[in-house]
Design a protein around this nucleic acid. Structure first.
Length: 343
DNA sequence: CTTCCACAGGAATAACAGGCAC
DNA sequence: GTGCCTGTTATTCCTGTGGAAG
């Protein structure tokens, strides 16, 4: 049944982006000075997960590069590259200006120097920029005229809440492009075209069933496509040529889980252990966890446990990733799970 | 009200890993 | 190889906070 499974994978970027014409136009317009060889003002892109922020940015830049031959781009995911150093390193890597060899032993200042010496024209995209620890590098990049900056974040407050005033004033008044979640019919249409590309004929899924998926995904295309993929696998395993409503019902939790697992993959072992402990505790007791219990449980489970100061640092990190919630500032501290609203 | 103490998080510092020069 | 950079992770020591018990 699956003829082209590639198009259902999360990293797949379709040739045409649907239902984002307005945003595409806005971004293209904002970047328009580049077609005159000038640097464009920074752009901030906001909106919840799975609404096509990253895809649209990639797509728009690729189109732009078709006409602007000298234009280079560097897209950095700050989730994976959260230190200023790593982000800068990735940018240089994208530009092919990687230090003579791979990695380290070069101070951050020198990475900045190398970027300053760069003499082309480049659009730097900082994806998930709220995860970037050292926001100061945005300021440094902003001062280099070769670079046009695009910042992608879920909520603008998350970004402005953690940057200092001089950067804030530098970014103030920049254009913001906001993405709304997909509507039911939009998401259904997206699923339709992905399904058409992915499956062999005869078509194994009706549009009505796609609508069920779209409804369950609540505007998040990544969840929707993952659910579709899992449902197809379910049907395939059962040796059927048609996807049924039951396949979809089974695939909804699986799909959500798969999306969440993708996030957990990026965690360090200590962080994953801590997350699992909290997850188990909360699902068993239905209430957030007390620090002493958490520390004790962690020390029991980890084969080489880390000190509790460091545990606290990791917990803050998990909070920053919005996987864990922290309440209370002292003895009232409790660690809970971020509710991924079940809709 | 005061005292206690579990807990947070800042600062300094060390241990480690990779790259580079010798 | 040895030493010397670097960023990163962890430890140690410390002060401050706020709920709870006396």
């Amino acid at each position: 049944m699956l003829q082209n499974a590639r198009v259902l994978r999360p990293e797949f970027v379709p040739q045409e982006l649907q239902h984002r014409d307005h945003e595409h136009t806005a971004l293209t317009e904002a970047l328009n000075p580049l077609t005159r060889g000038e640097r464009a003002d920074p752009v901030i892109i906001t909106g919840p997960t799975g609404v096509g922020k990253t895809h649209l940015t990639k797509f728009t830049l690729e189109r732009l590069q078709e006409t602007e031959l000298g234009l280079e781009t560097a897209l950095v995911n700050c989730w994976q590259n959260y230190s200023g150093y790593r982000a800068l390193f990735r940018i240089l890597e994208n530009l092919g200006r990687t230090l003579d060899v791979h990695r380290q032993s070069t101070p951050q200042d020198e990475l900045i120097e190398r970027l300053r010496d760069y003499d082309g024209t480049c659009v730097i995209v900082l994806d998930e920029v709220d995860q970037l620890e050292d926001k100061g590098i945005i300021y440094d990049l902003r001062r280099m005229p070769q670079f046009t900056i695009v910042l992608i974040t879920n909520r603008e407050e998350d970004l402005f809440g953690s940057i200092d005033d001089r950067l804030q004033s530098r970014l103030h008044g920049t254009r913001t492009i906001h993405f709304e979640p997909y509507g039911l019919s939009e998401l259904t249409a997206i699923l339709r075209s992905r399904a058409d590309a992915a499956f062999s004929h005869p078509d194994p899924i009706s549009t009505k069933l796609l609508e069920e998926i779209a409804d369950a995904a609540a505007g998040d295309a990544r969840v929707a496509i993952t659910v579709l993929r899992e449902a197809a696998k379910n049907a395939d395993r059962a040796g059927r040529e048609q996807i049924t409503s039951a396949d979809i019902a089974d695939a909804i939790p699986e799909g959500r889980q798969a999306v969440r697992d993708q996030n957990l993959e990026a965690l360090k072992p200590t962080q994953r252990t801590l997350y699992k402990i909290i997850e188990e505790y909360v699902s068993e007791h239905g209430k957030p966890m007390q620090p002493s219990h958490l520390y004790a449980e962690y020390e029991e489970r980890a084969d080489d446990p880390v000190g509790n100061r460091q545990v606290r640092r990791h917990l803050n990190k998990l909070d920053h990733y919005e996987l864990v919630t922290i309440k209370g500032s002292s003895r009232d501290r409790r660690y809970g799970l971020t509710s991924h609203d079940e809709h």
